[in-house]
Each structure stands twice: as structure tokens, then as C-alpha cells.
Design a protein around this nucleic acid. Structure first.
Lengths: 350, 350
DNA sequence: CTGAAAGCGCTTACAG
DNA sequence: CTGAAAGCGCTTACAG
């Protein structure tokens, strides 16, 4: 009888029920109190070596995995960080999500992704969802929400935001040098001999869009060229707007030999419009994008563009969050913009 | 004094501390027991109208939001569902993630996205993370994991899987008709007069890839054409493999006037290789892809392809999960494949 | 260095 | 229809 019981017990230990092993079982098995197990798990206090060894052994033997839900309720930490992005399927932010997931999971944290849908009210609701789920911190990948709305949350938990220069009180802001990128793209075209360089602007509500345009203007100015409003058309950062913009450009009648689109998606749209209007890229017009999306390497012809280290942006944001969470001061930095010259741009003939 | 206190209380009620209002506060405010509030919240039992009204009023007044973490611990339900996808930034699955997020959030559930990285061991670990976080169910967007591995989890919680015909015991499987899609694409080319139709296969570990190829063969056969192995080259579903495959095709020497790539990403790669080798699309060779990625509308020329309702797939998977969670039998169905003829395919000249 | 105890905010049998 | 009570699985002051 006794033996049977023992065997049964051992059996249980070896093949624990799905998620049924609790910290209390570990404590019993190791002959210590739950408090001690908890402390070892969290590194909260110094514990004698023998107890620690007993607990480690028990954990291994039972296959114990702490329950994050209980942890969240008791300790106030859920080991999860909320990530608000505009669209979970954005070709641009996707790489950032991956960077975040990779670095967070390496530290035992889980990301909780929610979409903002390019709309402040929606973003606010998404953040509420995150807070209701008691995330330990929030990473915001560029949002419409103002600094003050973010600052409210920053009072009670760490917030890191990308896509703006300064985040306001208590917010860690991570920004890519869009101005320099815009300047580089334009300079590239200038170096190729182009003088009539059209610009397809991004959504002007984005600081990114404004910065890239500023870079465009700065490069022109440095080259002693006048800014010609007839060569600048608005866009929304999506393909269709790039298409429409390019169409406006050819129909506008002002001559141009090159186009710099404020992002790759618009460049893709512009390329198609140009094609439809019989302007060959790069023979008739050189085209440069911005972001270096994965798709840019495989367009026909491959797109010259500014490399935006979006995966690294995600990594940096997550690293900063981890630092904030551990009480350290964020030190994350982003690589500078880099021109990737492919086949959509070429020297001005003649 | 009394008045002051009252005012203070009212003040607290109007502007509650961040997430500080608990169910217990609501109970006090409404003059009922916490149990009753809980029952009303969960629709667990019939409650008298006046109590219900009092509770509803109290909830509104205090701005109470239930704490999902506590709920998860106490009730065993976290109102979250795990979603394993291969890569959080996949241009193909992205739409499905959005479909899942949209329908889940409409029902008060949150998705928890984790990546499998095309690797069974990684997938298994990701699922463990999900289980540790006590998700109420798991949606798997095509994985390498075998049916039996999935079946183990299906014993203790609802599982819906996409990308395979049958999911095994207790698993809800949702599949797109890839065979029919492959058939349609080939038939389209056939109807255009093409007879020498090359096929760039997908990763053969994917059932999808095998089904699409089966469709290709079936269409050829139905047209009385022999299957020519010289026209069939392997690929991995990524752009570079499509590029390499197309290169093998032109270098192989076997004549062909059309190419059907088992997915759009490979078609993009093939288009570039064809271009580099001086074969114009569609003038020299017609090209058809599969999936209808967002990018397919803006390639030069726009890509003819099979529309894969990926957003709807996500919606259907989430709907099935919601049904499973509520004890209902899943009834989700997917739209049939549909050919989208754009400009990369055209009638065989002459 | 280590336990006993209370508590996190809910849910759910158990009794009316 | 409704409460009081126990409990979910941890963490964390509080006392040694």
C-alpha cells in the first residue's frame, strides 16, 4: 500500500498534470516554506546554499513553472509589456514588432500587441486594454496621441515611445534621424546630376514626414537649388497615394528627372503610375524611396532607398523598456540612416 | 466635518485612482455583496432587477473595470487567446493577425501573439509560454508541429489550427482550398493559350505547397497536357527562392511562355530574375502568383494571382475559437479561391 | 537567513 | 435570488 502510494506520488512528479504544479508543491518537496521558494525564484533575498539547492532540485524534479497570472495579482508585475502599433500587419512596423518580441522574450517578458488604427481614440482604448491587463510597461510605436496623454500613463509605469523627438515628462523617446535620411536621399539624386527632383510627401501629421521633407529642402538648399512647390505633392504614406501623387506630377507639366518619395510604399505606387504613363524607371526618371522595406529589394527594378533600421528600432525600444523596468537609465541608440543605392536611380543622362 | 467627508468620497468616486476601483467598492456602493456584482458581470445567474440597476449604476459611477488578472486566477479564464504564427511580421499572415485581433477584441478577448519561426521546437516553446500565461484557447496559423503534439493541448483547451485539412482529435481545422486555387491559376494560363507553363513550387513541408502543385497537375491533365518535370522547380516560399527558381528555368533551356509561382513572394522574385534575363512580363512570359498580397497590386506590372482571403481566415479562426469557448460547435467557413487577373498575364501571342 | 500570515481582486460552490 | 467563505497561486511586509 505504502509503496503504491509512493509510486503514485513519484508518477505524479514525473508527469505533472498540465500546469498543476504550484509553488507550494515545490516548497513541500524541498522542505522549505513557500516564501523561500518565492525568494529564490525572484532573487529577492539571499538564501542559504543548501536550501537553494534543494529548491532548484525540486523545481527541476516537478517541472514547476511559475504562474504569471498569480504573480501578476500578488506582486503587481505581470512580466508583460504592452506594445501599441498602428496595424499589426504593417509592412513597416512588422520588423519592429519582431525586434521587440525577440529581445523581450529573451528577458522573460511577453509582448502584448494592440493596434491603434491611426486614430487617437482607438489608441486610447487600446492603451486602456493594456492597462486593464496590468502590463508592466508600454511601448508605443508612433501614435497620434499627444504627449500629455502619454505623460499621464508615464506617471504610473514606464513608457517608451518611438517616432517623436521628445516624449514629455518621464517618457523615453527613441527617434530615427529622418531629417538626415531625407537629406541623404536627395543628396544621392543630386550627386547623380539631377536638378529637377520631385518630392512626394508623407502624411504631414507624422513628425517623420515633416522631417524627411525638411531633409529634402535642406539638401536642395545646400546645392544652391530653389525649392519649387510645383515639384512637391502630398501623399499619405500608402501605395495609392504615391500612385496619385506621381500622376499629379506628370500631369502637372513641370519637368522632373527624379522623384524622391517619403516612403517605400508610396515609391511603389509612384513606380506603377510612372510605368502607366510611359516613363521608365530609371531610364526616364530616377526613383528613391525611404525605409528599405523587405519588398524594395525585389521590385522591378529594385528600389534605391534609405535604410531604416526598423528591427533595431524594436530591439532598442525593448531594451530601453527592460532598462526602465530594472530601474536603470535607458542608453539605447539607433544606427544612423544609410543610403541603399539599387537600380531605380541612375546618373542623369547627358 | 461630515459634509467634508461626503465631498471627499464623492471626489474619489468621480476621479478614481488609476485602476484602483475594485469589485468590492462597487458592491459597497451598490449595497450588495461582491458575489452579486460578480454574477451580474458574468451573467452567471439571474439577479433581481433593482439590484442589477443599482450595480450598473455603481459601475458607471465608479468607472469600474474588472481586473482580468484576478479574474484569470480566480476563475481560470483569462479572456485571452494565444495565437502562434510563424513570424509576427509575415506579409502573408499579417492579414490573419488583424482578422483575429478584430474579431477577438469585439468579444472582449485579447490575442497573445507568439512566433514559431518555422521550427517545431520553437513552436513548442511558444505554446508553453502561452499555456504558462493561462490563455483560454490557442489558434495556430499553420505550424510544423504534428497533429499529436497539438492533440495533447486540445485535451485541455480549445485549439483551432489553419493550414491543414484535419487537425486530429478535438481540434478545429480550418483550411483554404489550395488545390482549387492551384487549379484555377493554371486554368487561367491555359485559357490564355499557354501550353508551356512552368511551376515554381513552394516549401514541400507545407501541405499548402503540395496542394497547389496538385492543382497545377490536375489542370494540366484536364487539358490533356503532359506533366513535364523540366518545367517544375522547387522553391521555399520566399522571394530569393523564386528568383533562383526562375533563373534555373531560363538557364535550363526548356521553353516556357508562362510561370505559375506557388505564392506571390516567389512570383516577385521570379519577376526580377526574368527581368534581369531580358524576359519581359507579360510580353515574353506571363506570370501568375498565389495569395494576393497587398503588394501584388502595385508591382510593375501588377500581378495576376489567386486571392487568398487571409483576413477572413483570421476572422474565421477567431470566430471558431469564440464558438468553442462558448461551448458551441464551430461553423466557420472560408470563401473559395478566386482568380484576380491583373497585368502580368496575357494571351499567348500568335 | 527564513516562516507564518495576510493580501492581490476576483469566482464559485455552499447554504440559505 | 443572494451572502459568507474559501480559494486561485503567488508576493511581501512582519517578525524572528
Amino acid at each position: 500500500m505504502k509503496i503504491t502510494t509512493a509510486v503514485a506520488r513519484r508518477g505524479q512528479a514525473t508527469a505533472p498534470q498540465e500546469g498543476k504544479v504550484t509553488l507550494e508543491h515545490v516548497a513541500q518537496e524541498a522542505g522549505v516554506s513557500p516564501s523561500t521558494v518565492s525568494r529564490i525564484l525572484n532573487g529577492t533575498a539571499v538564501v542559504s546554499d543548501d536550501k537553494r539547492a534543494a529548491v532548484d532540485a525540486a523545481i527541476a524534479r516537478l517541472g514547476f513553472v511559475p504562474n504569471p497570472v498569480a504573480r501578476g495579482l500578488a506582486g503587481g508585475r505581470t512580466l508583460s509589456v504592452g506594445v501599441v502599433t498602428q496595424a499589426i500587419d504593417s509592412p513597416f512596423y512588422g520588423g519592429a514588432l519582431r525586434g521587440i518580441e525577440d529581445t523581450l522574450s529573451g528577458a522573460g517578458y511577453s509582448p502584448l500587441f494592440v493596434s491603434g488604427h491611426w486614430n487617437a481614440a482607438h489608441e486610447a482604448r487600446s492603451i486602456e486594454t493594456l492597462r486593464a491587463r496590468r502590463v508592466d510597461g508600454i511601448i508605443v510605436l508612433s501614435c497620434r496621441l499627444g504627449d500629455s496623454a502619454l505623460a499621464v500613463h508615464a506617471q504610473s509605469l514606464p513608457v517608451v515611445v518611438t517616432g517623436r523627438g521628445v516624449g514629455g515628462a518621464g517618457i523615453c523617446a527613441l527617434n530615427f534621424d529622418n531629417f538626415e535620411g531625407g537629406r541623404l536621399a536627395t543628396e544621392h539624386l543630386l550627386a547623380l546630376g539631377h536638378r529637377r527632383i520631385a518630392f512626394i510627401a508623407g502624411d504631414s501629421r507624422h513628425p517623420d514626414a515633416r522631417e524627411r521633407q525638411r531633409g529634402y529642402r535642406a539638401a536642395l538648399q545646400a546645392a544652391g537649388l530653389a525649392y519649387d512647390p510645383a515639384l512637391v505633392v502630398p501623399g499619405q504614406f500608402f501605395e495609392e497615394s504615391g500612385y496619385a501623387a506621381a500622376e499629379r506630377l506628370v500631369q502637372g507639366g513641370a519637368p522632373f528627372t527624379a522623384v524622391f518619395a517619403a516612403n517605400d510604399q508610396m515609391a511603389f505606387g509612384a513606380a506603377l503610375a510612372l510605368h502607366r504613363h510611359g516613363r521608365r524607371v530609371p531610364d526616364d526618371v530616377s526613383l528613391v524611396g525611404f525605409d528599405d522595406l523587405a519588398a524594395a529589394r525585389y521590385t522591378v527594378p529594385p528600389l534605391s532607398t534609405i535604410h531604416h533600421p526598423i528591427y533595431e528600432l524594436g530591439q532598442a525600444a525593448a531594451t530601453a523598456m527592460l532598462q526602465l523596468l530594472s530601474g536603470a537609465t535607458p542608453t539605447a541608440a539607433l544606427p544612423p540612416p544609410r543610403l541603399i543605392a539599387r537600380e531605380s536611380s541612375r546618373p542623369l543622362p547627358g
